[in-house]
Design a protein around this nucleic acid. Structure first.
Length: 735
DNA sequence: ACGGGATAGCTTTTT
DNA sequence: GCTATCCCGT
């Protein structure tokens, strides 16, 4: 395609964004305004005009899927291969840099990437080692603090200095130990992937200069969701010529909870005073009704640069707001909508069901399965978290990086081979004494006097087999290694002859992993790309959404977060209840949290091209609180009220749930319904009501939750803050 | 050393 | 309610 043809396909602001090359550029791209198009065309333009060569471009995206699509699109536009182009997520690009350079920081190139689960396991182990009571701080909390620190680029020593109270001092200790453990294991966690390159570049200016020289043009997608580390990385790599183009939408910033810093985009103009700002406000996706409604909602936020979307797609249908009695009824209504849309000629793959939390998929799934509607669930998957899969992966990790003691510990006695707690402790003591890794100690088991000959023997056998396979690791492909591991260590045999159906499922899962490895190998013609190391990197950085196939004829279920960047002709957003969406924590905390929830709602609404359905349930069973399965009484989400009446059509079906044939799924459910019903006979509470408490005074009910133990109310009092109160025991006066 | 039964803790969103 | 971990008897 010629450059002129290319540019002719863009509207004026898009064209300007593509061709502007005189300095830093900020593109504020509203939902559906062709942001991906601008990025791909810009890359194609840079190459076609020979401004830079493909290998001199660095493009950073939010998902691997986006990266792959953009790359294909660029190749299509140019009609040529762009192999050298650096395009990928921040994490994968950083991993790529580190695989080449990390030896400068004292790590080895074959480092392991720890996911959240590994992180947690490592923290738990350290806490055990330090003899710390789990009641003092929960491992989860420590993990959170460490991650937040890393996102702010605060290392363990710096954190230690700020730790004034006892608990933070303990966390600081764990943090310090955690860092040494990772170093010893030659492992990096997700946050390290972003931080280590920064460390590298600050220690080795020569390397920085090399990469700065290499990347003549830097592009960043979803700039509103970058954190401090990513921000610094981008700034660093775009120097000295500041040849940079960032694209983002502050209204779609939905990841501040994991360190994304909305000020990165809000103050881009301050960081690059001579930058050009281009707004893309024409939306090519949704109907005017959907856009207007979304605009009205998000306009309530204060943290924004501001823009107003418009489209030429016509008014379209009003937004349907449907009130249902329970999550089961809500799911039934969803099924009804799908059937109706099908009759109108909408395909299954053109519909999406979105929700705030993964747990909500369950009720929906039940109904879809029951009615035979084909569906797929994106995210929330725990495939890689299953025991048998983690075990197999741990074997593979040890083969690639024997110093990964976390992985080695996991498999040293799986399947049971007679290396128990005591022997393991002796082994560890020896390793500590000699200052060597657990793996090295294992190789010297014969020299450890404390071990019984029997244990020495078992260890010798185990390590010989590992070593034998390890010799092949770089010679043959990932699949071959894995199948050998499965066969020779008897990972499948462990479950194969069990009568337990769960064990049969484990066998299938192992087969499924081997299958995906076969596919991995098949997809890569070059043996260099088929290695085990490459596979392990892929599984740690690739997510569910990356493998999601938009053309498969099934309805898609996913969280609102996962839906970012996608679009569907028909979108259903479920669980629009105060306390669920927006989630109660954001209501109990501050206005900023609520604004983020609102942006999330905005993201959800703007996924819809033609029709948008918003559903809520008056009563919902949630696995939460002390009693794990309690029934919550809900009022509609405040977000629903924020949509002006002229854009919506409301249907109240809260009273029509009594169709006895399908009403109760089981006796047990009936009991729950009854439990929820009883309280309505006496005093009935509803979120939003104002009550007076003897000691706490006036307060507003935020949530009503009923379980075996009675009705529990979450109330925000003027002075005492948010409290949880059992209604039966408190003398509450309704106002 | 290992398997069975009791029990604690869990669910916000994810690269 | 589910599951991962703990505790105990063999």
């Amino acid at each position: 395609m010629t450059i002129d043809n290319l540019l002719a396909q863009l509207n004026p602001p898009q064209r300007e964004a593509v061709t502007y090359l005189d300095g830093p550029l900020l593109v504020l791209a509203g939902a559906g305004s062709g942001k991906t198009r601008v990025l791909t065309y810009k890359i194609a333009y840079l190459i076609a005009r020979a401004v830079v060569r493909p290998e001199e471009i660095l493009a950073l995206t939010f998902t691997n899927k986006a990266a792959n699509e953009m790359k294909h699109r660029v190749e299509q536009l140019l009609g040529m291969d762009v192999r050298g182009l650096w395009i990928g997520t921040f994490h994968s690009i950083c991993a790529r840099i580190l695989r080449r350079e990390i030896h400068h920081l004292g790590f080895q190139r074959n480092f392991t990437i720890y996911d959240a689960g590994d992180q947690l396991a490592q923290i738990e182990r350290i806490m055990q080692f330090l003899n710390l009571n789990r009641d003092l701080v929960k491992p989860r909390q420590v993990q959170y603090v460490i991650s937040q620190c890393k996102n702010k680029m605060m290392d363990a020593l710096a954190y230690e200095k700020t730790a004034t109270d006892f608990v933070s001092q303990q966390i600081a200790k764990i943090y310090l130990e955690y860092e040494t453990a990772l170093r010893r294991n030659n492992a990096l966690d997700f946050d390290d992937l972003l931080i280590k390159p920064l460390q590298l570049f600050s220690e080795r200016k020569d390397l920085l200069a090399r990469y700065q020289e290499r990347f003549k043009y830097v592009l960043v997608d979803e700039y509103q969701d970058t954190n401090k580390a990513q921000y610094h990385l981008v700034r660093l790599l775009s120097q000295p010529d500041r040849v940079i183009c960032v694209v983002g939408d502050e209204d779609q910033s939905i990841y501040t909870w994991r360190g994304a810093d909305i000020t990165n985009i809000l103050s881009f103009e301050k960081d690059f005073p001579d930058c050009r700002v281009i707004r893309l406000e024409q939306n090519y996706r949704s109907t005017q009704t959907i856009l207007d409604a979304a605009n009205e909602v998000v306009a309530r936020n204060t943290q924004r640069l501001g823009k107003t979307l418009w489209s030429e797609n016509g008014q379209g249908d009003p937004i349907e707001v449907i009130a249902t009695a329970s999550e089961i009824d809500e799911a039934r209504q969803v099924v009804g909508i799908i059937a109706k849309e099908r009759a109108r000629g909408i395909g299954y793959n053109e519909m999406a069901i979105l929700y705030r939390t993964n747990a909500q998929s369950r009720a929906l799934e039940d109904q879809l399965r029951r009615t035979g509607i084909p569906y797929t669930i994106v995210g929330g998957t725990k495939f890689y978290e299953r025991k048998e899969i983690k075990d197999l992966l741990a074997y593979l990790r040890v083969l690639v990086n024997p110093t990964d003691s976390l992985a080695l510990r996991r498999i040293i006695n799986v399947p049971a081979r007679g290396i128990g707690e005591v022997s393991l402790q002796h082994l560890q003591d020896y390793a500590d004494r000699e200052g060597i890794s657990l793996y090295q100690a294992l190789a010297q088991a014969g020299r450890i006097e404390q071990l019984t000959p029997r244990a020495q023997n078992k260890m010798h056998h185990f390590i010989s087999l590992l070593e034998e396979i390890r010799r092949e690791v770089d010679q043959v492909n990932a699949l071959e290694i894995a199948s050998r591991v499965v066969e020779q260590f008897g990972l499948r045999a462990m479950y194969e002859n069990s009568p337990d159906p769960q064990d049969q499922a484990r066998v299938e899962n192992i087969n499924e992993l081997l299958n995906s490895m076969a596919q991995f190998v098949d997809e890569r013609p070059d043996p260099v790309d088929q290695t085990l190391a490459a596979f392990l990197e892929e599984v740690s950085l690739v997510t569910d959404i990356d493998n999601w196939d938009p053309d498969s004829p099934v309805v898609t279920l996913m969280t609102l977060h996962s839906a970012k960047g996608l679009e569907f002709p028909v979108v259903m957003i479920t669980g629009l209840e105060d306390g669920l969406f927006p989630l109660s924590r954001s209501l109990e905390e501050n206005e900023e949290k609520l604004e983020e929830e609102r942006r999330l709602f905005y993201v959800g609404m703007t996924r819809a091209k033609q029709r948008l359905y918003l559903l809520w349930a008056k009563s919902r069973r949630r696995f939460w609180g002390d009693d794990f399965a309690s029934q919550f009484q809900n009022v509609p989400s405040r977000f629903l009220r924020e949509i002006p009446a002229r854009f919506k059509q409301e249907r109240d079906l809260t009273g029509v749930s009594e169709s006895p044939a399908t009403r109760f799924v089981s006796l047990e459910d009936a009991a729950w319904e009854e439990a929820a019903g009883t309280q309505e006979e006496g005093q009935s509470y509803q979120p939003g009501q104002v009550v007076v408490h003897d000691t706490f005074g006036r307060g507003e009910i935020l949530a009503v939750e009923s379980s075996r133990h009675g009705t529990k109310l979450t109330i925000r009092f003027g002075r005492a803050g948010v409290k949880k109160i059992v209604a039966e025991y408190a003398n509450l006066e309704l106002l």
